[in-house]
Amino acid sequence: MEGCGDFLQWLGPDMSMNILMCLKDPSDLVRVCSVSSSWRRFVIENSLSKQLCLRLFPEISSLAHVIEVENMIEPIEVKPDNSMEWECLKRDHRVYAFLARGLTSFVRKDCVSEAIFASSTDNYPEESIQNTLEPSDRVEQRASYWSSEGESDPTVPEILDYKLIAKLCVITEIHVQPFQAYFQLGFPIYSAKAVRFRMGRPRSLMEIGFRDEFEAGRESPLYAFEWTYTSPEFPMAQENCLQKFKLPEPVLCIGGILQVELLGRVQRQELDGLFYICISHVQVVGRPLSSGFDVDIHGPSGRCTLKYYHGAEHCQSPTRAPEG
C-alpha cells in the first residue's frame, strides 16, 4: 500500500492513542519512538510504554513509579507536582520499554534454579527434594525422586519450595511428574490428589539456600515467605508422566520463590500401610527477566527496588548519547 499520511497530524492525539494502543509488542513502540521527534514525544508524553507494560503484566503496578539514579532504578513516592516532568517520563519510558521487552523474551522450561525446602523427607539424602531437579526418574541405575514421610491420614498435605532463576519471572506453566515405584510390587504411583502453586518472595533479607527438614527442623516455610500469588487447585492424575498445569494467566513472580503444594494422598505403601507422595520431577515454564535487571527486596514490608544495570545486556551501542 502506498504511504501517505502521518496519522498523528491527520487524526490528532485521541485517535493516534487508539492506534498505538493496538500494538502489543514493546519493540514496536520502541521503533515508533525513532520514527520522528513528534512521534517520540507523543509516545513518551502519554506513557505508552508503561501502559503497555502494565497491560501485559498487571502485577508490575506495585513497581509503578520508577526513577533511575545513576545505574539504578527504584520506586519512589508519586509526587503529583513532578509526575509529568519530561525527564521523569523519559525515564519511565526507557525502564518500562526495557522491562516489557525483558519479560516478553523467549520462554524457557528451566526456570527453577534450586530446591530449597521440603515439608518432609522419608530418607535423606536418598529421597531428597534435590532429586526433583533431575528430569529422569533414574540416575545411574538408582531411582531419583523425592518422597514424603508416610502418613496414616491421606489428607495430610506436603510442600516443596523452589527458588527460580531470576527474582522476576513471568510463569505460565508448572509441570510435575509423580514417581512410579518401579521396584515395588504392582508398580504403585505415589501421586497427589491435587496440586496448587504459590509464588512470592523471602520475608527476611537472609540469603535463601537449601533447607530441608533435617536442617531447618519443621519450621513452616509460611513464615519464611510472603506469598503474592496462589493458583487454583489442579487435580492430579495418578499417572507416571510429566503432568502440565497451565496457570489461568501468566503470573509475574516478584521475589523468585515458587511453592508446590501437594494436596491429599492417593497411594498407600503395602509394606507399612501408610500414604506417601513421591515426585520425580518439577519443571517451571516461564520468562525470567533478562540479566540487565535485578530486584532488591527490603525487609518485611515487601517494598522492592527494581535495579537496572546499564551495559549488562542489550546495550549494543558503544556510543551512548549523553542525556538531554
Binding site: 493496538c22 500494538l23 520514527v35
Partner: peptide
C-alpha cells in the same frame, strides 16, 4: 480501523514506518 493501521507498524523497521507514514 485502528487495528488495521497498527498492523502497518507491527514488526516493521523504522525505515519502513517512516516511508509508510511520513512518506
Amino acid at each position: 480501523l485502528c487495528q488495521n493501521v497498527a498492523e502497518m507498524i507491527k514488526g516493521k523497521s523504522v525505515h519502513h514506518i517512516r516511508i509508510q507514514f511520513l512518506g
